[in-house]
Design a protein around this nucleic acid. Structure first.
Length: 305
DNA sequence: AAGACGAAAGTGGTTGA
DNA sequence: TCAACAACTTTCGTCTT
C-alpha cells in the first residue's frame, strides 16, 4: 500500500481499509465489498518489499526477465554515440568496428521472421492487456501460451492477432478472471466467433482444457458494474450454489446463470435492476435472463426466501 | 411510457453417426 | 462430413406497472 491508496475512501460506507485484488485488478472495500476501482494498472514493484534495506536492493536489480518482451528483456544495447565511457571521441578504426557491431546486433536481435513476428505479437498482447486492465500475471501467462503456440507451429494459417487474442482469453481462463469473448473482441479486431474458434484450437493443441467458467466468478463483476451492494452479491451467490447443487446450471451459459441470479437477488433485496440493465453488463439478452430466471424460480422454490 | 413477458424464427457450436 | 440438437439471440406483439 502506498500513501496514495490510504487516502481513498469507500464511497459507499466511508471505510478506509481497502484491499487490492491483484488477481482481478480491483480495489475492494473490506467493509462492504464494493469494488471501487476496476481494471487498474499494476504499478507495483515486481517483488514484495519488506523493509528499507530491501527497497534499495530490489530497485537496483533492474527490470525482471519477462515473457512479454520478445527476448525476455535480456538484450544488450550498444549505444549510438561514438564516444567511449569517458565521453572522448573514438578513433576512426574503433568507430568502424562499433558500427559493424551495431549492424550485426540489429540483425541478430530481431533476425528471422519468427522473432520479428514475436515482437509484433507481444506488443499487440501488451496493448490488448492494458486496454482490458489485466494484471501482470495474466499478461505473462498469455505470453507463455503464445510462445508455446509458436513452438508448436500453430500460427500457420492464422493471423498473429487471432492467436494473440486467443492466448489472452486462455490466460484469463487459467487465472480465473471473468472475461467475455466480447470484451476481447472489442479491443482487438477479431470477431467473437473467430476468437472462440481459435481459443478452442489453442486449448486443444496445448492440452489446456479448463473447466467451464463458474457463474459465481461473474457475480462480483456484474454486481459492481450495476452498483449493487454486497448483500445482493451474497444472495446471488447463494442462489447459484443452490442451483448448481440441483444440477440446474449444467450445460447452461455461466453468464446467463449469474445474470439471472443477480436479477432475482436484486428483487429480493429491494435493489431492483431492470432486465435490460443486467443484460447489458452480462452481455446476454433479456430473453435469456428471463428464461434462466424462470427456471431458477421454478426449480428452487424461491418463494420461501 | 417503460419494463416485463413470451412466441417464433434464426444463429453458431457441439455431437454422434 | 453432415444432420440433429440445445443454448442462445433477434424480433416483435402483448400485457403490466
Amino acid at each position: 500500500m502506498t500513501k496514495k491508496d490510504q487516502k481513498i475512501r469507500c464511497p459507499e460506507c466511508g471505510e478506509v481499509e481497502l484491499i487490492r485484488d491483484y488477481e482481478r485488478a480491483e480495489l475492494i472495500c473490506t467493509n462492504c465489498g464494493l469494488v471501487i476501482k476496476e481494471k487498474m494498472m499494476d504499478f507495483g514493484p515486481e517483488w514484495r518489499i519488506f523493509d528499507k534495506e530491501q527497497t534499495k536492493e530490489r530497485v537496483r536489480v533492474g527490470a525482471p526477465a519477462t515473457y512479454t518482451i520478445h527476448d525476455k528483456g535480456l538484450t544488450t544495447v550498444i549505444g549510438w554515440k561514438d564516444k567511449d565511457i569517458y565521453g572522448r571521441n573514438l578513433p576512426p578504426i574503433r568507430r568502424a568496428q562499433i558500427y559493424r557491431l551495431r549492424k550485426l546486433q540489429r540483425r541478430l536481435s530481431v533476425s528471422d521472421v519468427i522473432e520479428r513476428n514475436l515482437v509484433f505479437a507481444l506488443s499487440e498482447l501488451n496493448r490488448m492487456a492494458s486496454h482490458l486492465g489485466l494484471p501482470k500475471n495474466v499478461k505473462e501467462s498469455a505470453a507463455v501460451i503464445y510462445r508455446k503456440a509458436v513452438e508448436l507451429n500453430l500460427i500457420k494459417g492464422r493471423s498473429i492477432e487471432e492467436v494473440t487474442a486467443a492466448a489472452i482469453y486462455a490466460a484469463c481462463r487459467q487465472c480465473k478472471i471473468p472475461i467475455t469473448l466480447d470484451e476481447i473482441s472489442e479491443v482487438s479486431r477479431i470477431e467473437k466467433k473467430n476468437l472462440g474458434r481459435n481459443y478452442r484450437f489453442l486449448a486443444k493443441k496445448l492440452h489446456m482444457l479448463f473447466p467451464p467458467a463458474n457463474p459465481i466468478d461473474y457475480v462480483p463483476k456484474f454486481a459492481s458494474e450495476l452498483g449493487l451492494s454486497s448483500k445482493v452479491q451474497n444472495m446471488a451467490i447463494s442462489i447459484i450454489k443452490q442451483a448448481s447443487a440441483k444440477g440446474i446450471t449444467f450445460g447452461k451459459g455461466p453468464k446467463s446463470i449469474a445474470a439471472a441470479a443477480i436479477y432475482i437477488a436484486g428483487m429480493l433485496m429491494e435493489e431492483r435492476r431492470t432486465q435490460k440493465q443486467i443484460a447489458e453488463v452480462a452481455r446476454v439478452t433479456e430473453v435469456t435472463i428471463r428464461n434462466r430466471y424462470k427456471e431458477l424460480v421454478e426449480k428452487l422454490d424461491l418463494k420461501t426466501l
